[in-house]
C-alpha cells in the first residue's frame, strides 16, 4: 500500500476537521439561542477530536506528534479545502457551511468505514455516529429555516450561493486518487461528490432554497495542494499564539 497516498488522505481529512472545528468554536457564547450554542460547540469539539484521531494515525507513519503538526505548520502546508477556512460570517453562513461540509463528511466516514486500510476503517466506524448527529442537526435546521420566513430564506440562499463554489472545492482530487480507489482505501472524491449531491439536493428540495446551477459554478480548488485564501494564515497564527510562546513547554 502506498504510504504517501494514505498520508495525503489522512492530512486532508484531519486538516479539514481541525480548521472547521476551530472556526465553529468561535461561536461558543455568541449563538442565536442558548441551546444551539451548546449543540454547535459539541460538534466543534467533535471535529477537533476527529482531527486528533487522524493526526494520531499520521504519527504512526512517522509524522510529528499531533500538537506539532497542528500548531506549527504554515498555511501552505495545510491540505484543507478553502471552504473550512472562510470566516464564520453570520449564523446563516456558518449553518450552510456546516450543512454542506458535514453531509460530505458523513459520506466519507461511511465509505472509510469500509476502507481496506484497517486503522482508518476503525476510526471511521467508531466516529460515524457523531457525524450522524451533525448531519441530523444540519439537515433539520436547513429544512426548518429554509421553508420559514422570507428573511431567513434570503439569508440562507445568499450564503448557499456564496459557499457552493468552495464546497465543490472539497472534492478536489489528490495526486493519488486512482491508487486509493484501486487499493480499496477510499472510494474517491467523484464517488463522494455524486452521493453528496443527491443528499443535499434531497434536503434542499424540501425547502424554498435553490441549488445554484452546478454547470456554471467553478469549484474553488487549491486547498488540497496548500493553496489557500488570505484567511487561513491569520487563523493559524491565532491558534498557535500561546503554543508558540514556548513550543517545547507543556501547557
Amino acid at each position: 500500500m502506498n504510504e504517501q497516498a494514505i498520508k495525503d488522505l489522512l492530512y486532508k481529512l484531519a486538516d479539514d476537521q481541525l480548521i472547521l472545528g476551530h472556526r465553529n468554536s468561535e461561536w461558543t457564547g455568541f449563538g442565536p439561542i442558548l441551546e444551539e450554542d451548546i449543540a454547535f460547540s459539541s460538534m466543534a469539539q467533535d471535529k477537533i477530536g476527529h482531527s486528533l484521531a487522524f493526526y494520531t494515525l499520521l504519527q504512526e507513519f512517522g509524522e510529528a506528534d499531533p500538537d506539532t503538526v497542528a500548531f506549527t505548520r504554515n498555511a501552505n502546508q495545510f491540505h484543507s479545502s478553502q471552504l473550512v477556512e472562510l470566516p464564520n460570517g453570520e449564523y446563516d453562513f456558518s449553518l450552510i457551511r456546516h450543512f454542506l461540509y458535514d453531509n460530505a463528511e458523513f459520506i466519507r466516514f461511511e465509505m472509510l468505514a469500509q476502507s481496506s486500510y484497517e486503522p482508518i476503517a476503525k476510526v471511521a466506524t467508531k466516529l460515524k455516529g457523531e457525524v450522524k448527529y451533525h448531519v441530523l442537526h444540519a439537515n433539520t435546521w436547513i429544512k426548518n429555516l429554509g421553508s420559514s420566513t422570507e428573511e431567513a430564506i434570503l439569508r440562507l440562499q445568499s450564503s448557499l450561493n456564496e459557499a457552493l463554489p468552495y464546497a465543490l472545492g472539497m472534492f478536489e482530487k489528490s495526486k493519488y486518487e486512482q491508487e486509493l480507489i484501486d487499493t480499496g482505501v477510499y472510494a474517491g472524491e467523484e464517488a463522494v461528490k455524486a452521493e453528496w449531491l443527491k443528499r443535499i439536493q434531497a434536503v434542499i428540495e424540501k425547502t424554498e432554497l435553490k441549488l445554484p446551477d452546478l454547470e456554471s459554478t467553478a469549484p474553488k480548488y487549491g486547498g488540497r495542494y496548500g493553496d489557500h485564501t488570505e484567511h487561513l494564515q491569520p487563523l493559524l497564527d491565532e491558534m498557535a499564539e500561546v503554543f508558540k510562546i514556548d513550543p517545547t513547554a507543556e501547557w
Binding site: 441551546e35 433539520t140 435546521w141 426548518n144
Partner: peptide
C-alpha cells in the same frame, strides 16, 4: 426552548 420537537431533540441531546 425549541420551535418544534425535532429541534428540541437536537438541543436536548447536547
Amino acid at each position: 426552548h425549541a420551535p418544534n420537537e425535532e429541534v428540541a431533540f437536537l438541543f436536548s441531546k447536547e
